[in-house]
C-alpha cells in the first residue's frame, strides 16, 4: 500500500517517530486549536486530536483536524466507540478522508460516567478492535457490511492504544496482538510512569515478535506536580506510577523542572529500547513545553521523509 501520511512514511523509514497531542477546547473557538498548532508546528510528525476526551463535550476532533491541516500540520484523528455506531463511524471516516486526514486512532473511549454528561446513553455498537477491523476493510474498499465502495477507498493509517499498565498483565500483550491482527499499523501506549513495568511488557511484546508487525510509540507525559503524580497513581484506572518517580519529584527543588527532566530521560531510554518505533508526547495542559522536551531529548529537527 502506498504511504498515506507523513506519519506512515516516518514509521516506514525507520527513523525515530515523534507524535504529539492537542486537546480541542470546550467551545467553538477554533483559534485555540490554531494557537496550539502554530506553537507545535514542526516538532512532531503528527498530532492526535482527542475525541471528547474523558467524555467531556469538546470541539470535534475532525473539525480540529481541519484547522491543523490549514496550518500545515498533520492530524491524527481520534475516534471513540462510545459516541458512534458503525454508521456514524464510517461516515466520519469518509468525511475526514475527504478533508485530507489520513491518520486515525481507534479507541473504546472513557465511560460517560467520568464526563460532564453522565446521564447520556452510550453506544458501543462496536469495540475498538472491531473498529480497527472496519477501517481496515474501508481502506481495502468495502464497508462494514461487506458492500464494495463504488469510488476510491479512503487512504488510512490506522492506530490504536495499548495500556501496559492495565490488567491482566500478560493479556495486555495478547490484546495488542489482536489489534495488529485487526489491521492496526501503529500503537501509542498509555503514558509511561512506571518504566520497569513497561520494560517487562516490551519483553513480552518482543517475545511474540509484535514490534515487527505494529509500530509502537511509547507514551510520554511530563508530570507537573507531586500531587498530580499521586492522583494518577491512586485514582486513574489503568494507570501506574512508580514510587521512584514520586520520590524523585518529592525530593526535587523545582518539581516542574524535574518532571521535564524525567520525561527527557524516558525518551532517551525509549530511543535505545528494542522494538520502540518512537514516542507519543502528551503534555496535557503543558503543550508549550513540547518544543523544549523535543529539543533537549535530541528529537529536533524532525527529518524530512
Amino acid at each position: 500500500m502506498k504511504a498515506a501520511s507523513k506519519l506512515q512514511r516516518m514509521c516506514e523509514s525507520g527513523n525515530f517517530v515523534v507524535t504529539g497531542e492537542i486537546g480541542p477546547p470546550k467551545s467553538c473557538n477554533g483559534e485555540i486549536v490554531r494557537h496550539h498548532a502554530k506553537m507545535l508546528k514542526g516538532w512532531c510528525e503528527s498530532f492526535n486530536l482527542t475525541d471528547n476526551q474523558t467524555a467531556i463535550v469538546r470541539l470535534s476532533s475532525i473539525a480540529a483536524g481541519k484547522i491543523l491541516l490549514e496550518e500545515g500540520l498533520e492530524p491524527n484523528i481520534q475516534i471513540v466507540c462510545r459516541d458512534r455506531n458503525r454508521i456514524a463511524a464510517q461516515s466520519d471516516i469518509l468525511g475526514a478522508s475527504a478533508l485530507g486526514m489520513k491518520n486515525v486512532l481507534c479507541l473504546s473511549g472513557d465511560h460517560q460516567k467520568f464526563g460532564n454528561h453522565p446521564t447520556a446513553k452510550n453506544v458501543f455498537d462496536v469495540d475498538s478492535i472491531q473498529l480497527i477491523q472496519i477501517l481496515d476493510g474501508m481502506r481495502k474498499g468495502y464497508f462494514a457490511n461487506g458492500e464494495q465502495m463504488k469510488d476510491e477507498p479512503p487512504q488510512l493509517f490506522i492506530g490504536c492504544a495499548a495500556n501496559p499498565f492495565a490488567d491482566p498483565f500478560e493479556f495486555r500483550v495478547t490484546r495488542l496482538e489482536k489489534k495488529a491482527d485487526a489491521g492496526a499499523d501503529f500503537c501509542q501506549t498509555q503514558c509511561i510512569l512506571d518504566m520497569e513495568r513497561f520494560e517487562r511488557w516490551m519483553e513480552l511484546v518482543r517475545a511474540r515478535g509484535l514490534h515487527k508487525r505494529i509500530k509502537i510509540l511509547g507514551g510520554i507525559t511530563p508530570i507537573k506536580s507531586v500531587k498530580a503524580a499521586k492522583y494518577m497513581k491512586k485514582f486513574v484506572a489503568g494507570m501506574m506510577v512508580s514510587d521512584d518517580l514520586i520520590e524523585r519529584l518529592e525530593k526535587a527543588e523545582d518539581v516542574k523542572a524535574e518532571g521535564l527532566q524525567i520525561a527527557i530521560e524516558q525518551i532517551e531510554r525509549l530511543k535505545k529500547m528494542e522494538g520502540i518505533a518512537g514516542v507519543h508526547i502528551m503534555a496535557i495542559a503543558w503543550e508549550e513545553k513540547v518544543p523544549e522536551i523535543c529539543q533537549r531529548a535530541g528529537l529536533a529537527p524532525r527529518p524530512e521523509v
Binding site: Q130, F165, R175
Partner: peptide, 20 residues
C-alpha cells in the same frame, strides 16, 4: 460497562472496572 467483545479495555485494574 462498555459491552465490548474484545476486552478488557485499558481501564481494567486488579480485576475491577474503570467505571466503579
Amino acid at each position: 460497562s462498555k459491552s465490548i467483545f474484545n476486552g478488557p479495555c485499558g481501564g481494567s485494574q486488579n480485576g475491577k472496572c474503570e467505571v466503579d
